[in-house]
Amino acid sequence: MTTDIGLWGVPLAILGGAIRVSTPFIFVSVGEALTERSGRVNLGLEGTLVFGAMSGYAVAYQTNSAWIGLLAAAFFGMLFGLFHGYICKLPKVNDIALGIALMIFGSGLAFFFGKPYIQPVAPHLPAISLGWWSDVPQVQAALRVNVLFIAGIALAIAASWMLKNTKVGLTIRVAGDSADAARALGIDVNRVRLWSTAAGGALAGIGGAYLSLYYPGSWNEGISSGQGLMAVALVIFARWSPINCAYASLLFGGAGALGPALQSVGVTQGYYLFYAAPYVLTLGLLIATSSTTRAMTAAPGELSITK
């Protein structure tokens, strides 16, 4: 049964989209924010995300538990992060070039191992219905919230808190802002970056598992539409703040739902253009908030892209 709610469907679809689509962005971008705050860029998260989607799906199918699948995805994501972090420790390694290599390597590896899992159906991650108070099915559908979304928001808040209030957080920021200062404090910069990259990788793996285990909820080679890469850009857009990463992800997810929502309310012409909305929005906001004469104050001083 469906109730016709007319144009109200558009904001509702945007809300639902924001919640559904944003989750992988939240995980990947918060993870990348941690990595970049430690002074390293991991562009390979797209590959990590795809491998996380595959490994999560495969393990969930084999064990018949979505949660074990999720853990497996985080584990493999962490391995990718450790690999990236370890190679970057070697002298004269460029983290950008290595990231691009790992992006393609991760996807390729996932396609290779994932072939047998395209057909089978794995269990899904559970969702919570927050729309019980409404009789309108569209509202209920929009407010079916996956636990990972809530975990992601909590993670963003926790990460922000950690960067300000814990030894680990301050250590990460020191390593990211001034390697010389960090060394003077006796901090092993490479180790901090290694584990920050590992944490970022694990979170990207979880983001991938969300794709294959909840939305869209199956494993195939076209599962990612560049979320891993876009999330890296969102970090810059969010000025390296985990909380801002969550906001940026929501905004991006909501804008991404604009095209399908317009199509569903009967707009037949030009809605394809709205599929580009998130990218146009990101570009517009980046241009609006940038300046040629002002220094980007929040950027970690050690990043190879801002140095």
Partner: peptide, 9 residues
Amino acid sequence: QHFTLVPSL
């Protein structure tokens, strides 16, 4: 001679 403070902290 050069500062060892972390600028963003």
